[in-house]
Design a binder for these strands. Structure first.
Lengths: 150, 150
DNA sequence: GTATAAAGTTTAGTCCACTTAACTAAAAAG
DNA sequence: CTTTTTAGTTAAGTGGACTAAACTTTATAC
């Protein structure tokens, strides 16, 4: 049996439904325009937010074998989206990072996501904008704290 | 050149980055546990939020050929996730809708998404919760208005 | 130093989504 | 009533992601 959600939960859920639906669709559309596949694009996103990393981290994060990670990376290197180099301190390990081309691609996608958010809020009053900003700061903080505590 | 984002934009963007990252990952993980592929799961989501629809709507929404839509639907029927029936008013057309099994699957996934949201806010004070609820209601309204005006 | 473990690659083969093209059947148009 | 359009399916074939298994190279353990 579910307990009835609080008014805040309800608001959070309603917002999430709208937000998820819309942003997943536009994300999907953008990836398609790039000509990359979803797994390829996801790796670029990972590199954008978390910086350079080794192959093993990729296979862990995306829950695929080392072979799969290696093959995906190879395609991204071929396409010029990432650069692959040997780790000087451990010559078995490679690390990959975004190339300028890959970086531009991801940044353009993120900007497109931001645009929608800005559009949404463009019709709010200054007072409303302040309230929204405050609330989202609270949520972001709370989310980060939760993440850290795990 | 980008103009510097307002404090509200900044808060919105920070929230979006954290939120998208986390919820996309957990969504991905959940889909994997179901044994379904992403396109299959997306169709179930569509049916959950928008209700029954015809094949042509599926191929439009997901931007694939009618053949692809038909094949995906066939697999979901085989798996028992959806039911397919003839439209009585136009016997060429079929419509598909979630079966109880499919419906349960999607609802469980959504509940899992909600759980994280509730966790996040569990450490806020009552006053903060109130502010968050109000702000999110504003955003949800604004998003819907924007959608309608297009 | 030799054995073992670890990081990554290559190969062969599977599964799935997807497309094009040919098809069936029903509705709409003339 | 015949023609054309519409809704959907089927079949054949392509390309990508994925895995398991065999392999190379470097680091670590004993």
């Amino acid at each position: 049996m579910m307990t009835k959600p609080s008014p805040m939960s309800h608001a959070l859920r309603a917002w999430m439904d709208v937000f998820m639906h819309r942003s997943m669709r536009s994300w999907h559309v953008y990836v398609k325009t790039t000509g990359l596949t979803m797994p390829q694009f996801s790796i670029l996103m990972q590199l954008h937010y978390k910086g350079a990393c080794g192959m093993s981290e990729i296979s862990e994060k995306f829950d695929v074998t080392a072979a799969a990670a290696s093959q995906l990376a190879e395609k991204l290197v071929q396409g010029g989206y990432i650069e692959r180099a040997e780790d000087p301190s451990d010559r078995r390990a490679k690390f990959i990072q975004l190339s300028p081309k890959g970086s531009d691609l991801i940044e353009a996608g993120i900007k497109e996501r931001y645009r929608w958010m800005d559009e949404i809020t463009s019709n709010l009053t200054a007072e409303e904008k302040g309230r929204v900003a405050g609330a989202l700061r609270l949520l972001t903080e709370a989310a980060k704290n939760l993440e850290d505590s795990k």
